[in-house]
Amino acid sequence: MNGKLINKQWRAYVVVLVCGLAIISTALFITVNLSPLFVDYPHRLLIHWSRGQLAGDYRRLLLYLQVPWVRRLHLAALPLPAGARAHFQAVRHLLLLNEAVLMVALPLAWRMVGKQKRRGQLWQLIAPLMVLGLVVLMLAWLPLINFPTSFIRLHYLLFTDRNWIFNARTAPIILMMPTAFFGKLFALFLGICLLLGSLFFIWLRWQSGLLKLRLQETDDGRN
């Protein structure tokens, strides 16, 4: 009996972890594609290029970073040295990996949650989801305390080279993406994660309540 209970609890944590991975990868994908709303167009760039030219180059960058068959980064207006191209290529690999994770985790989470629902065991996901949400909040709080320092440490962790250190004179595109820009994106990413997680939690509580109500009605009918 204890073995079956442990297996059910373990399965519930696995389901929640897969759902959490799907939520995180979805939030990252949404954040990247909403990033043009937060791009800065400083006066230093507008002296030489129009806002339309700068926005067009940022869209070309996003296409290169996210679309597998766009294999060359070509900016129409802004110059881009070899080091910056190498860094964007490394970022592209990370974002394409996230898209691959999203394509696997999302349908897998859907299938696993559906199986839990058919078994009438959605309620078992509530406690693990609360634990996961608490862990995410605790980890997310650390970068928010000093985002610029955390942002630099993240680059040292993810990239083995120093190509991420841009020179604004040779790679002026960096002026469109200051540290404050990435801080806003991180806040957006965190907000989307919390929103999706909260909606999932509310849905689980609602479905569990419906199941409990149906079981109660069944018992009343028998009595």
Rank of each mutant, 00 (worst) to 15 (best):
T218E: 15
L21C: 12
Q207S: 09
S208H: 02
M176P: 00
I145C: 02
L175P: 01
L144Y: 08
L73V: 05
F88L: 01
M1F: 06
P148L: 11
I174Q: 03
L215E: 12
L65A: 13
D40H: 13
G191H: 04
S25H: 02
W10A: 13
G20A: 05
I202E: 02
L194C: 04
E99F: 08
R153H: 15
Q116N: 10
S25Y: 04
G114D: 13
S35Q: 06
M138G: 10
K117C: 04
F200H: 01
V113T: 11
T26D: 03
N167Y: 09
L61I: 03
L157C: 08
T26V: 08
F38T: 03
Q207C: 07
V18K: 02
L144R: 13
M130K: 14
R169N: 11
H74W: 06
I173A: 03
F38R: 00
R222K: 09
D57M: 04
G191C: 06
K184A: 13
P36W: 03
A22D: 01
I30G: 01
P42W: 08
L185Q: 09
R51Y: 08
G114Y: 01
L134F: 14
I174D: 02
V131A: 15
V104I: 15
N223I: 05
S198W: 13
C193R: 00
L61D: 01
G209W: 11
A90L: 08
D161S: 13
L210R: 15
V32N: 03
L190A: 12
A76C: 02
N167S: 13
P107G: 07
P68Q: 09
V113Y: 02
F38V: 03
W141N: 08
L194F: 10
P42D: 07
L94M: 12
W141L: 14
T170C: 02
I6T: 12
M177R: 02
L132H: 02
P143F: 12
M138C: 13
V18I: 15
N223L: 14
L213K: 15
L157F: 15
F182P: 00
H74P: 00
V67Y: 04
F159Y: 15
I30L: 15
Q89H: 11
P143E: 12
P107M: 07
P68H: 04
T149H: 09
L61T: 12
L17M: 13
H87G: 05
Q121E: 15
L17N: 02
P81Q: 05
H155K: 10
V131W: 12
K4S: 11
N223K: 11
D220H: 10
S35G: 07
G20Y: 00
P68N: 09
A55D: 14
G56E: 11
Q216W: 13
D220K: 12
Y58S: 01
L37I: 11
R72N: 09
L211K: 02
P68V: 04
N7P: 00
L78N: 02
L137I: 08
R111T: 09
M176I: 05
N223R: 14
S25D: 06
R169G: 00
W110K: 10
N146V: 09
L129M: 14
F200E: 00
H87V: 06
W49Y: 15
Q9V: 06
V14W: 09
W141D: 10
R162W: 08
L95G: 05
R111S: 09
A12L: 03
L34I: 11
P42L: 04
G221E: 09
A84D: 01
V113H: 01
G120Y: 07
R72E: 13
P143I: 12
Q53R: 12
V18D: 04
L62K: 03
H155D: 03
K8V: 03
